[in-house]
């Protein structure tokens, strides 16, 4: 299987949101002059879960971006045929020019990661920085991650790295192409 991926290390993510703003800046998702809170597109979001009760608590943080699904529901939903999964990289891409703004993909995406540009009527989302990675660069979020919680590469290789570092894949979070790992215990 050819699949590029990002591996999110739950031992290291601190939920700082640096990746979100860096990604927004890179893709020009924010009108710095006029944007107000609550109105800006974003290709990643931070989630967290705290378990236990005081004082025995555990908390994990991680980021959710497009999972570049194995069988993407967004592709199936799009009647205009604007979405495809790239054969060479496994990256799921939306073609802005083909997109008719029907928002079907947004309804069907289980991870709620597709953004909509109302002014220009197209759907857009994380492309795993396709235009960077094909030139040998890392995705923006991986490059800037404050805690070095993210790594990029071919999914199989990332799995090997996780194993070598003694980290386990969090199975229920890693059902698609993005990997979530943490140390046991």
């Amino acid at each position: 299987m050819k699949q590029l991926s990002i591996m999110v290390d739950l031992d290291r993510c601190i939920g700082c949101k640096t990746c979100i703003v860096a990604c927004r800046n890179h893709y020009g998702l924010v009108d710095h002059e006029k944007s107000m809170p609550g109105t800006m597109s974003h290709y990643l979001r931070v989630e967290s879960q705290c378990t236990g009760s005081y004082p025995n608590l555990k908390e994990d943080y991680w980021v959710v971006m497009c999972q570049h699904c194995k069988k993407p529901p967004c592709i199936k939903a799009c009647e205009a045929g604007a979405i495809h999964k790239d054969v060479q990289t496994g990256i799921v891409l939306i073609d802005k020019n083909t997109c008719v703004g029907a928002k079907k993909c947004i309804e069907k995406c289980p991870y709620e990661v597709i953004q909509f540009d109302a002014a220009r009527t197209y759907a857009h989302k994380c492309s795993l920085c396709y235009d960077r990675v094909i030139h040998g660069q890392e995705p923006v979020c991986v490059e800037v991650c404050l805690a070095d919680a993210l790594s990029f590469g071919e999914r199989e290789i990332l799995l090997m790295h996780a194993d070598a570092a003694g980290k386990k894949v969090v199975k229920k979070m890693s059902t698609q192409s993005i990997l979530y790992v943490k140390s046991p215990g």
Binding site: T18, N25, E143
Partner: peptide, 24 residues
């Protein structure tokens, strides 16, 4: 357009710094 940590000086920039463009 973009900002990031300088790799020659520990290489990191935080979310406030990244959002500095919005202040500008």
């Amino acid at each position: 357009r973009e900002v990031k940590g300088n790799p020659r000086a520990r290489g990191k920039m935080c979310v406030k710094g990244m959002a500095g463009i919005t202040t500008l």
